[in-house]
């Protein structure tokens, strides 16, 4: 009995002096002027003429921070989230933001190197989410999969898995956005941050334009993953907030 009782964790971090509020990040995916969902059916056409269907489009957003009016940053603890653009209206809920007024938000695309090398993880980082390279350890930061009519191969499918945590091939990208007005986190309100994610910019009208038909398979960190990571950082735009 002694051993078993020692196993239970005790929550010791309840701080009753500070109240908390919830902030919702609404992740609105778009493809040029179309609303986007990886639904395996809808055809999306890139400016280069390539027509794509997506069976999967999901990625990690991590280490979310909010900048308070006094200039200090609050970092969400255990801040790892999978955004699945195969689902309708995906959101990230920051349920534990201290009450206060904030001017900026900062987050990473991908998973920091520490969690890539720290053994078995839980929650969004659980290997059962199928976002982990088992034979070459590391998280898959994004899975973009589907078919492209212009691919020469008969099955027309593309698979782009981007990741890489080692310094020389780090695909982690940090992004900071100013709200333009104060965001008020509080127990009796539900402010939201509306992000536009312009999926087309992963491939075209972006830092490193890429023809999908020329990069059919990507399964590992390296040069191509770095290019796509630069493009991905270009996808995110803060549109507006609600208080």
């Amino acid at each position: 009995m002694l051993v078993i009782s020692a196993c239970h964790k005790h929550d010791v971090d309840d701080d009753h002096n500070n109240t908390k509020g919830s902030v919702t990040l609404k992740m609105d995916h778009q493809f040029l002027t179309q609303s986007f969902r990886a639904d395996s059916v809808t055809i999306y056409t890139l400016p280069n003429g390539e027509s794509l269907k997506f069976t999967q489009f999901k990625y990690y957003i991590s280490n979310i921070q909010l900048k308070a009016k006094n200039g200090t940053w609050w970092a969400q603890p255990e801040s790892y989230h999978i955004v699945d653009a195969g689902k309708t209206a995906p959101v990230i809920v920051i349920s534990d933001a201290p009450t206060g007024e904030y001017t900026d938000i900062k987050f990473n695309f991908g998973v920091d190197s520490t969690r890539n090398v720290s053994g078995a993880q839980e929650g969004a980082l659980s290997p059962s989410n199928d976002m982990f390279w088992s034979w070459n350890s590391g998280y898959i930061f994004i899975k973009s999969e589907g078919s492209c009519e212009q691919i020469a191969d008969d099955n027309k499918t593309f698979i782009h898995h981007v990741g890489g945590f080692r310094p020389e091939n780090s695909a982690v990208r940090e992004m900071t956005f100013n709200f333009g007005q104060d965001l008020r986190a509080r127990p009796d309100g539900a402010p939201s941050v509306h992000m536009h994610i312009q999926v087309d910019k992963m491939y075209q009208n972006t830092v490193h334009p890429i023809n999908v038909k020329d990069m059919v398979r990507l399964h590992m960190p390296g040069e191509n993953a770095l290019k796509l990571a630069d493009n991905i950082a270009n996808m995110f735009v803060l549109d507006h907030i609600h208080n």
């Binding site: 090398v117 053994g119 078995a120 659980s126 290997p127 059962s128 088992s134 034979w135 350890s137």
Partner: peptide
């Protein structure tokens, strides 16, 4: 290719030629 003892078994468990099961199914 695998850098941590805890994540090592994911490879044989989920490899289609070995134990052939996803971590979610396990």
């Amino acid at each position: 290719g695998i850098i941590h003892l805890e994540t090592m078994p994911i490879a044989p468990i989920s490899d289609s030629l070995e134990m052939g099961i996803t971590m979610a199914q396990v």
